[in-house]
């Protein structure tokens, strides 16, 4: 009887303590809880709701069912912009990986004189704000007086009209993004440094040479890092916007996509629908579709990479 009361008292004390911690936890988490409701949950729900309405910001949204989605699949610009985006999504992560990994490998050689200097030089471009780098890009790739074509001309090559020829516009942007790969390079450098030297030594004893060591030891060892970077870069590429916006500019109530609409990226078209044509409902439908595309792509990428990535290293 007495024992029972004691445990009961203990349980009460415990639950009181728990409740105290609960409120304290809520209090400290409250900024995020409020932010989560106001800046994430509600907007996401609203976006879903708007995507089923006609909404131009000035009138109340009017329910139209699946009309926006139907329209979206018949809109040639949606397909065009999706194609342009896919071009970036497929190529940009790969180019970024090759360039940043190559730089990291070069920096990771034994006895590099002035390593911090080189590292800094490779990193600095990634600090240049996007707007400034697009300015710089426009100037460097100027068809007649741009430095790039002048240098190419010096070697007898006639450079293309980088930013006006629709075949080269996206390539120009990807060159710029490769130039700004410093952050990824640092990540790869850290990953390369984490590969234990003993693995290389063992391989050398077995007679492995440079490339073999690279493909059999280095790549498998850093594969989780490669996966992380590729997926993050892929997600970022789906949301490719700023560069396109800066190069095409806004033009009243027409679709603006640069030369032959070659720079009309999905998010750029979405933005124009929302803020140039004030078709907010339609833009929300596009955003919802983008969300779904990104989710599916991420899951696919993870599934494919699961077979290729070596998670055993720790």
């Amino acid at each position: 009887m007495k024992k029972n009361a004691a445990t009961k008292a203990k349980a009460v004390r415990k639950s009181r303590q728990e409740r105290k911690f609960f409120w304290k936890g809520m209090l400290f988490a409250s900024p995020w809880l409020i932010g989560f409701v106001c800046f994430t949950i509600l907007p996401v729900c609203l976006a879903f709701y708007y995507s089923f309405t006609d909404y131009n910001l000035f009138n109340d949204p009017a329910w139209v069912g699946f009309k926006n989605y139907k329209e979206l699949f018949q809109d040639q610009y949606v397909w065009l912009s999706l194609g342009n985006t896919m071009y970036i999504v497929i190529l940009a992560p790969l180019i970024g990986m090759v360039v940043s990994l190559a730089l990291a490998m070069l920096l990771n050689q034994k006895n590099v004189p002035g390593l911090p200097f080189f590292r800094t030089v490779f990193y600095l471009p990634s600090l240049v704000p996007v707007v400034a780098s697009v300015m710089l890009l426009t100037w460097l790739l100027n068809g007649h007086y741009g430095l790039v074509n002048q240098i190419l001309g010096f070697f007898g090559i006639e450079g293309p009209a980088w930013l006006t020829d629709p075949r080269y516009t996206k390539i120009s942007l990807m060159i710029m993004d490769a130039w700004r790969c410093g952050g990824t390079m640092i990540i790869y450098l850290a990953a390369l440094r984490s590969v234990p030297a003993s693995l290389y030594e063992a391989a050398e004893l077995d007679g492995a040479t440079g490339w073999k060591k690279f493909f059999r030891i280095t790549i498998p060892y850093i594969s989780p890092t490669i996966e992380f970077n590729l997926i993050m870069s892929m997600i970022g590429s789906f949301q490719y916007f700023t560069q396109g916006m800066l190069l095409t500019g806004v033009s009243g109530n027409q679709v603006a996509g640069g030369p032959s609409n070659s720079l009309l990226f999905y998010c750029l078209y979405l933005y124009q629908n929302a803020f140039s044509f004030f078709k907010m409902g339609y833009a929300c439908a596009m955003a919802v579709v983008l969300f779904i595309i990104i989710m599916i792509a991420t899951m696919l990428a993870r599934k494919i990479s699961d077979r290729m990535v070596n998670y055993d290293v720790e």
Partner: peptide, 22 residues
């Protein structure tokens, strides 16, 4: 949940946020 919200692309919340701020 916090990690999951990182998956939501900014484009989804942008327009409702804009409408609300306006």
């Amino acid at each position: 949940i916090i990690l999951m919200t990182m998956m939501i692309p900014a484009q989804v919340t942008q327009i409702p946020m804009y409408a609300t701020w306006s």
